[in-house]
Design a protein around this nucleic acid. Structure first.
Length: 277
DNA sequence: CAAGAGGCCTGTTAGC
DNA sequence: TGCTAACAGGCCTCTT
C-alpha cells in the first residue's frame, strides 16, 4: 500500500534504472489503468520520448519525458519492474513500456486500481490529479498555520482530514494512524475541536513520522518486494497499525480497531483519549 | 458547498 | 474440510 515514503523509494530506484533511456513503444493490457487521454493517444504520444527524470508529488510518481509527463498512481498494489527481453509476463502485468535498451519497464497491479495519465509539461501543475494537492509533509513545506486554517472549518474527524490529499499530500491509512498516535490525538476528534497545541503536535508528528518512514525506505506489509530492493523497514516502527489487541508501548492499554471515515483505524484508547494538553 | 456512500478489483481471511 | 462472504484500501463520481 504505497504511501508517500514507499513512492519516494520507488522513485529513487527508477531514477537510477531508467533515466536517460528512450521509450520505443507502449503496450496496454488493461485499459482501465489509463485514465487520460485515450489509450491510443497515450501510446502514440509516449513512443519515441526519452525519460529525462523521475519526480514525485504526494503519492504520484512523475515520469518526466522529453515533451510530456506520465503521472502514475500506484494506489494499493501497483509496482514497476524492469525486465530483460523475453522474460515471461507475470500474471498481473498491465502496462509495458518497451525501452531502446531492449529492456521492458512493466507495471504490475494485482487489484488493477492504479491509474496513469499523460500530460504536457506546461500543463502538469494544472492537471486535475495534482492541482488541488496540499503541501508536502516536510519541515520546509508544511506550516502549522495551514493546518489551523484547514481544521477550523470542518467537522470531519481528524483522521479523515489527514487522509485528505487537499490538506496534506501523501499520507495514507497506515501513517495517519501512526501520526495520530504519535501526537496523542483521538482519530475521531473533529477538526474544529482541535486546540492549537494539538494542531502543533500533529504538524510535528506528520513531519517526523513521514520523514523517518522515507529514511527507512517505507513500510513493507504482506512481504511484497519489488525489483529494486525497495523493501522498507518502517514496519518494525509501527505502534498501532495492525496492532489490534496488542498492548500500547507507552501505557500498556490494549490497542483497539474501529472504523473512522470508512477506514480501519487503530489507536490506543488510553493515550489518545482526545488529545491531552 | 461539504460530506458520505458506492464503485473499481482480487487475494486473503473469517465464518459457517 | 470446503465453501462463501466480508474485508482491505485510495481516489473518483454520484448523491444527499
Amino acid at each position: 500500500m504505497p504511501e508517500l515514503p514507499e513512492v519516494e523509494n520507488v522513485r529513487n530506484g527508477l531514477k537510477q534504472l531508467i533515466t536517460g533511456k528512450t521509450i520505443t513503444s507502449v503496450r496496454v493490457l488493461w485499459t482501465n489503468i489509463i485514465k487520460d487521454p485515450s489509450v491510443t493517444e497515450f501510446k502514440q504520444k509516449i513512443a519515441g520520448q526519452k525519460i529525462e527524470d523521475i519526480h514525485r508529488r504526494g503519492k504520484f510518481l512523475l515520469f518526466i519525458l522529453s515533451d510530456d509527463v506520465v503521472i502514475s498512481h500506484l494506489r494499493m498494489e501497483g509496482k514497476y519492474r524492469l525486465e530483460g527481453p523475453g522474460v515471461p509476463l507475470s500474471k498481473h502485468t498491465h502496462v509495458i513500456f518497451e525501452l531502446d535498451t531492449k529492456e521492458e519497464l512493466r507495471y504490475l497491479d494485482v487489484r488493477k486500481f492504479g491509474k496513469m495519465s499523460l500530460v504536457e509539461k506546461e500543463k502538469l501543475s494544472s492537471h486535475p490529479s495534482l492541482k488541488d494537492l496540499g503541501p508536502e509533509p516536510t519541515e520546509e513545506s508544511l506550516e502549522t498555520a495551514h493546518l489551523v486554517e484547514a481544521f477550523k472549518k470542518t467537522g470531519r474527524p481528524v483522521k479523515a482530514c489527514l487522509l485528505d490529499q487537499k490538506i496534506v499530500a501523501g499520507i495514507g491509512n497506515i501513517y495517519a494512524d501512526e501520526i495520530l498516535y504519535d501526537a496523542y490525538v483521538h482519530p475521531e476528534k473533529k477538526g474544529n475541536e482541535l486546540n492549537s497545541k494539538e494542531i502543533k503536535r500533529l504538524r510535528d508528528s506528520i513531519v517526523s513520522i513521514m520523514n523517518k518512514a522515507v529514511e527507512m525506505g517505507g513500510t513493507t506489509i504482506r512481504t511484497y518486494a519489488n525489483a529494486f530492493g525497495a523493501q522498507g523497514s518502517f514496519q518494525s516502527h509501527l505502534r498501532v497499525y495492525g496492532k489490534t489487541g496488542e498492548s500500547c508501548h507507552r501505557c500498556h492499554h490494549t490497542i483497539q480497531k474501529i472504523k473512522v471515515a470508512q477506514r480501519g483505524t487503530h489507536f490506543c484508547p488510553e493515550c489518545q483519549k482526545s488529545g491531552r494538553g
